[in-house]
Write a protein that binds this DNA or RNA. Structure first.
Lengths: 224, 224
DNA sequence: GTCTATAAAGTGATAGAC
DNA sequence: GTCTATCACTTTATAGAC
């Protein structure tokens, strides 16, 4: 007579999740304004009015997409972040430049793969959108992983670059970020300038090599 | 009986220009899809149907905005570009590293001011939009100034960095661009990380100092 | 939780008078 | 060139049956 408990508690969650995935795709591919809830619901195979039921309104759905993105990225970057934290926790005295560089490279490689690798289009575009025109969704991103990432890079480059003002270390960390991000933020120019069709594994290897070389040059110890 | 010739030939151009300026503002501030031609015409103090008359349709207006942007930027960057070309035309033999760096700094400073300086919001955001999702408007930008800029940076860094593969020089040029662009493309993160309210003259000076130092470190001559 | 149906307010484009 | 008026269509949101 009664439905199985699992179904009763699961059916709605499945609908919610289906909508969330479709929304992430659609918002990234077409931009917030161009996405119609009619088309979104149709593509997800879900009734349109269920969007209102599960997320309230369009903005609520948009916001939920970012909570999902932040959670995914945090999970994916956690090993690299933890490695950097481990490297940093070894006190100044016992520092090992090679190990510090290694931790830094793992972190930058991770972010590069995240922002330019296969399947990165969906979230990367949404993140860029929030950088240009931040809404409440930006806070979800910054508090979720961006702040922590920038803080780690800043502390690492400060240690590697030798005596440096805190403000200079922060700017330096941002220019490091910029060297990675440009392959996403200026993607159209990158593809044209490099005559690439997309950023595939070979291209990514080329980029990684250049980045590692750049970081070593930028963080060469000041002459004693 | 007849209207003055100047009026007859000018009235329409004025309307066209008014619409163009309003459109640049509006598209940058709200994004293509969110701009309604009704609201745009109202803000410009022009009848809505005149958009159709002068630009055909919404896309035509959008396209015209980019022709305008490319022209403005080309004009603004022309002195710096010419300086780099002059530096490059002095053959390899007679090269003067200090002069090369000087030309490079003028170019990067120019682009930095263009992309982050006061009043840059309008065009910078539109350029970013085209980088993420290029339309025919991107060609106007790339052919108008981007291609030339990247080419000049590539040739300059190739000369300064010593023996380097062409592909590596191009990637290096892109990472140089990235260090500038990050202050626009990741603007929300930059402001939060630096505790800046906006990128004012002082902030820009800080960035310039960091960039110059970075470029010198990146392009240090390989040990002989 | 899911559905149908529809209200209320937008949108871009254009015909036709001046 | 500029205007008014309107067509044809899409949008988000929600009321109400199941």
């Amino acid at each position: 007579m009664t439905m199985p408990v699992s179904d009763r508690s699961t059916r709605g969650d499945l609908t919610r999740d289906t909508l969330l995935q479709a929304a992430m795709q659609a918002f990234a591919a077409e931009g917030y304004d161009k996405v119609s809830l009619r088309a979104l619901a149709a593509r997800a195979g879900v009734n349109q009015s269920l969007i209102g039921y599960h997320f309230g309104h369009k903005q609520g759905l948009y916001r939920a997409v970012f909570v999902e993105i932040a959670a995914r990225i945090r999970a994916r970057l956690d090993p690299e972040m933890a490695a950097v934290e481990a490297a940093l926790s070894e006190g100044e005295g016992a520092r090992d430049r090679a190990a510090d560089f290694d931790a830094l490279f793992r972190l930058t490689d991770g972010v590069l793969a995240l922002m330019t690798g296969p399947g990165s289009d969906a979230w990367a575009r949404l993140i860029m959108r929030e950088q240009q025109r931040p809404t409440e969704a930006f806070d979800i991103l910054y508090d979720g992983f961006m702040g922590r990432f920038l803080d780690l890079v800043e502390r690492l480059v400060a240690r590697l670059a030798g005596p440096i003002e805190p403000e200079a270390a922060r700017v330096l960390a941002l220019t490091v970020l910029g060297q990675i991000l440009v392959f996403r933020s200026a993607r159209a120019s990158v593809l044209r300038a490099m005559s690439w069709r997309d950023i595939d594994a070979a291209a990514m290897a080329t980029i990684r090599t250049a980045l590692h070389r750049n970081l070593q040059a930028l963080l060469a110890a000041a002459p004693p």
